[in-house]
Deep mutational scan, measured.
Amino acid sequence: MDLSALRVEEVQNVINAMQKILECPICLELIKEPVSTKCDHIFCKFCMLKLLNQKKGPSQCPLCKNDITKRSLQESTRFSQLVEELLKIICAFQLDTGLEYANSYNFAKKENNSPEHLKDEVSIIQSMGYRNRAKRLLQSEPENPSLQETSLSVQLSNLGTVRTLRTKQRIQPQKTSVYIELGSDSSEDTVNKATYCSVGDQELLQITPQGTRDEISLDSAKKAACEFSETDVTNTEHHQPSNNDLNTTEKRAAERHPEKYQGSSVSNLHVEPCGTNTHASSLQHENSSLLLTKDRMNVEKAEFCNKSKQPGLARSQHNRWAGSKETCNDRRTPSTEKKVDLNADPLCERKEWNKQKLPCSENPRDTEDVPWITLNSSIQKVNEWFSRSDELLGSDDSHDGESESNAKVADVLDVLNEVDEYSGSSEKIDLLASDPHEALICKSERVHSKSVESNIEDKIFGKTYRKKASLPNLSHVTENLIIGAFVTEPQIIQERPLTNKLKRKRRPTSGL
């Protein structure tokens, strides 16, 4: 017993010596996670971090007073192994002897410093981030199933929210409404489509400006004509009531908005009720001829604005009016007729031209339509002016008669200019590109209106002035400009410049 007691005391002394060697000089306990400095002193990692955080910048070693920084600290694995072995020896000594260790306080702390507990403390002390800490805590505590279930439920809930957000973003663009038309193969669909197009076009005519009305009406008319041609002859009974509906809707729209509806009346003529396609083609032919005449008058307007600064050229074209007008009339009417003589009366030419125009518009179905009313009214106005011209010709002399006839021709041009508003800008460009020769010939008609105004002003003063002067240069210039014009009389060319000069002198006297 005595020997055993001596041996136990010796073992205890050895353990105490080893414990003092492996103590931390700051906390005076076994080193936890030993860290060595540049001066080869060993301290606990937790104690050194606490010391360095007390001051900004480098701190001093507690043993040798040298500078220490966080970067200079290094882990010493050898001392950590020695500490672990010492703890194992102490545990074995207690089991063999059955005696508690003399320094129970220190031993209890040593026992608490088992490797499992050290790992837990290291995970908390090290600044490795929240995710690494959570992982280490889960690994160190596998015995708690409640914690695992809560963490898994949190992760699953987070994943569910992310997935639901993604699915919502994908589903939202798919919620856009999609309209699908289910059509049938019955023959009544074509008639319904035609009526739908006509009503939609009328609404567009009321909303859209004048520049786009003609294009819309032309497209709708083409669509309706194609649909009529596709149907068989057996379905004509269905077409006639639908066309009557079209007429009623167009008349109502014309009564409500007459000014807006006139812009599309000329282009919509071939959508009118037709028994066969031949009647629609004839109407299209007549409309094309009318559009040609209207576009020519538009060309004359532009030329008149350009040549208004040259009064000499405008005056020299006075007698070329009849010849150029004959050529335009021959090209406007498709019928083959002989040219009228140069010395014939211009009023007779106008009456013949009106007689040619009237039969074209005397179809029984055309008179029933609303768009032809505008053309009939313009023709009636022309006839009224010609009836007035006959009365004026009986009273005035030959020279005054010529000037009045020219004035009436200008009035006719004004009437025809009203129809110019109905034609589109695209048709003007096509006419100029296809028929430049006709445009040059028809330019002379509009330029002549300037000389007509001068004659009217001469009649106000009650006299006409003449001068025997020749202007050969002007006649040559005008002959080169206009290709299809005829030779003019030299006496009238000489008379016109004198009248304008005298007018300039006598205007201030009349004002006084």
Rank of each mutant, 00 (worst) to 15 (best):
F46Q: 06
Q148C: 12
Q74W: 03
S157A: 08
E85T: 15
Y105E: 06
L82S: 00
N103G: 08
R166D: 08
E121N: 07
R78V: 14
L137D: 15
A102R: 05
M128I: 10
L147Y: 04
E75R: 11
Y130C: 02
E29S: 14
V162Y: 07
E84L: 12
N132W: 02
N106P: 12
A108L: 09
A92P: 00
K55V: 08
N106H: 15
G57R: 12
P145R: 03
G57M: 04
I89E: 00
V299W: 04
S146R: 11
N66R: 06
T69N: 15
V162E: 08
H117V: 11
Y105V: 10
E111K: 09
F93P: 00
F107V: 02
K32S: 12
V191S: 09
G57E: 13
Q155A: 06
H117S: 12
K45V: 07
L95A: 06
T77S: 10
D40C: 01
M48R: 01
E10A: 15
C39W: 00
D120P: 08
T167K: 07
L52N: 04
K56R: 12
Y105W: 14
S80Q: 13
H41Q: 02
S186H: 04
L6A: 14
D67H: 03
Q148F: 05
E181H: 14
N66P: 00
S184R: 06
E111S: 07
N113R: 04
I42C: 15
I89A: 10
P142K: 05
I26W: 11
E143K: 05
Q94T: 02
A134V: 10
T164C: 09
H117A: 05
L22N: 02
S177Q: 14
D67P: 14
K110V: 03
T37M: 00
S72C: 14
K88N: 13
N53P: 04
E10I: 14
Q126M: 04
T97V: 04
V83Q: 12
M18L: 11
S76P: 04
L49G: 04
Q174V: 12
L3Y: 06
R163H: 08
K45A: 09
G57A: 11
K168P: 13
P25L: 01
Q139L: 13
N16L: 12
